[in-house]
Computed example of a mutant assay.
Amino acid sequence: MKINVFGFLATIILIVSLAPFSYASDPSPLQDFCVALDDSAAPVFVNGKFCKNPNMVVADDFYFSGLNKPGNTSNAVGSNVTAVNVNQLPGLNTLGISAVRIDYAPYGLNPPHTHPRATEILVVLKGTLYVGFVTSNPANPANENKLFTKYLNPGDVFVFPEGLIHFQFNAGKTNAIAFAGLSSQNPGVITIANAVFGSDPTINPEVLAKAFQVEKNVIDTLIQAQS
């Protein structure tokens, strides 16, 4: 069979050039839906979940109730995240999207964190939030990681790029509420302080002291605070 070399090379170049865009978020499904099922005997396994028999799927598989209820912000940081991902809403499996409600006590904080698999778009419903994100390590070592911040009021929208460290702080004296959409059925979350100082087992304090350029006793205090 005769092969068109130029056509073949052009096809390869096109596939390679589109690959980063194709995998920028969860892969597109090849069926209408694949409702997640906690049953290892199910015959189909997609995106880390077993699939429910389509003939057994019902409307409730695509339904979640409760985002109208405020979360409990009586904690050290004064915030609460109510997640609606594939673990709470099985119908999200393979659909590449999820949502959260975030409640903030006065001066409450959603601490610096990342979502390794999702971009986040935040909408403020109530209160005033101070939000921001930090860029990844710059190509030029002489440059510093850049911080982008903004004060948001009800109706304002802000986006946090995938994988970047970001935060939200309630800058007001009253409760605040925000909703967010994320570009993954299971975006994941890495809270920086918890991950660095509260891992199990603990990262060697000498490593952390060297990384943060502080005395070891400071690291010991931070580790103890996370335990």
Rank of each mutant, 00 (worst) to 15 (best):
V5S: 07
I12Q: 10
S17F: 08
A19R: 09
Y23N: 09
P29L: 07
V35A: 01
N47V: 05
N53W: 15
M56I: 07
V58Q: 09
D60E: 05
Y63N: 03
G71W: 00
T73K: 01
T73H: 00
V77A: 10
V81S: 04
V81D: 12
V84F: 00
V86A: 00
L89M: 04
L95C: 04
G96E: 02
I97M: 15
I102A: 01
A105S: 07
A105T: 05
Y107S: 06
Y107L: 13
N110T: 00
L125F: 13
G127W: 15
Y130G: 12
N137M: 07
A142V: 07
N143E: 12
K150P: 14
Y151A: 09
L152V: 07
D156A: 13
V157P: 00
F160E: 09
H166M: 09
T174I: 08
N175H: 13
A178G: 09
F179P: 04
S183D: 11
N186Y: 08
I192G: 11
I192V: 09
A193F: 14
A193N: 14
G198L: 13
N204V: 02
P205A: 02
P205L: 02
A211I: 02
A211Y: 04
E215Y: 14
V218L: 12
I219Y: 00
L222R: 05
I223D: 08
